[in-house]
């Protein structure tokens, strides 16, 4: 008998607490998005909790696309306030947002991140790459004598005689990562154009668009492996495969210099100087997007955004730069943008 009473009271308790909770408003900033931005966001969130009277924001990860999808679900306390992204928001995502009532979005650029190519520290001598090497090693199909054939290269030496004669084993970010897009645009496509493969493709009768798609199509015969997890997964794959080459973020590499050695790209070694000067070719801006409708509703949202882009945090001597973020030379403009709550539509 007592069991019935217990279950009845448990139900009642659950029901009461559920309604009480639904009525309570959220007091913390809720953030979702890129796993590349997550480390930086976690530094800022911790400092924000420690330096202000607002509670520490909650930062989820899961990838730029997933984060922006949740961001665009709508307006209201049960949606996220900020989406972190390692790429700019796409036109289609802005449309989805608008369709769900998220019309005013503030775009905040927090700095730049370098993408580096690293291998096992005691592995083969991968010290210098050109974009063309990566294109020829990873392309699904290459134009040979006026026809597209499946990529015949099996070792790095096939691609470039200066590289070690070991089998091609590349671990690149999966398609859900914003990093993949940068890798495709700044490495594969550039390599495709520079090597003349693009012209050759058009010469075989391909349309320009098809040729562009073919440039960034990655072979699926096992020589290139998509990593959908974090950089730690890439590192684990490299550690178990001495010939493996991985794509990492600069800050991740700098944290693991005892295990990894980095290769130059186009003759330039990646570091914060070469990336901020634009010499190192493979870098991308990092962003977060703020829902303007939530400013004033969620306590501490605007304060978080201005705290993030303040000189003390995102500036060249702040904790973010110290961890490996390349600080944005135009930070002052971003600060002003946050202060004025300038939305993307107003910028245009």
């Amino acid at each position: 008998m007592s069991y019935l009473k217990i279950s009845a009271s448990a139900f009642a308790l659950a029901a009461v607490s559920a309604t009480a909770v639904a009525a309570q408003s959220r007091d913390n900033v809720q953030i979702a998005g890129s796993s590349t931005v997550l480390p930086y966001a976690s530094i800022v969130a911790e400092a924000y909790g420690a330096n202000t009277d607002f509670p520490t924001p909650v930062v989820e990860s899961g990838g730029s696309s997933a984060g922006l999808a949740r961001f665009c679900e709508g307006v209201g306390e049960n949606t996220v306030d900020i989406a972190n992204a390692s790429r700019a928001i796409r036109e289609s995502e802005i449309e989805t947002c608008a369709a769900n009532g998220v019309e005013d979005i503030i775009e905040v650029r927090i700095g730049y991140d370098g993408i580096v190519f690293a291998s096992q520290i005691n592995g083969p001598e991968f010290t210098a790459f050109e974009a063309t090497d990566w294109f020829n090693a990873l392309a699904a199909e290459l134009p040979v004598d006026g026809a597209m054939v499946a990529n015949p290269n099996t070792t790095w030496a096939d691609v470039n005689a200066d590289l070690p004669a070991v089998e091609i084993a590349a671990f690149i970010p999966g398609t859900k990562h914003g990093t993949r897009e940068v890798f495709e645009e700044n490495v594969l496509r550039v390599g495709c154009e520079v090597s003349g493969a693009m012209e050759a493709m058009v010469a075989t009768g391909m349309s320009e668009d098809d040729a562009e798609d073919a440039c960034i199509a990655v072979r699926a015969d096992g020589a290139s492996v998509d990593i959908d997890g974090d950089y730690t997964e890439t590192l684990a794959r490299i550690e178990s495969n001495p010939d493996g080459l991985g794509v990492f973020g600069l800050s991740f590499y700098e944290n693991n210099t005892d295990k990894l050695k980095v290769a130059t790209m186009g003759g330039v070694a990646p570091n914060t100087d070469t990336i901020s000067s634009g010499e190192y070719p493979v870098s991308r801006p990092l962003f977060f997007y703020v829902k303007k409708a939530h400013i004033g509703v969620i306590p501490g949202l605007k304060e978080y955004a201005s705290f993030f882009v303040s000189d003390e945090i995102a500036g060249p001597n702040g904790p973010l730069a110290n961890y490996g973020l390349v600080s944005d030379p135009e930070l002052a403009a971003t600060q002003e943008k946050v202060a004025n709550e300038t939305t993307m539509s107003e910028e245009m």
């Binding site: 809720q30 509670p55 909650v58």
Partner: peptide, 19 residues
């Protein structure tokens, strides 16, 4: 939303422990 960076203080009561 429970995976990621969640670094809140200890809850100050039973209700806030749940919510």
């Amino acid at each position: 939303g429970m995976v990621g960076f969640v670094a809140r203080e200890y809850p100050d009561g039973i209700v806030s422990g749940f919510t």
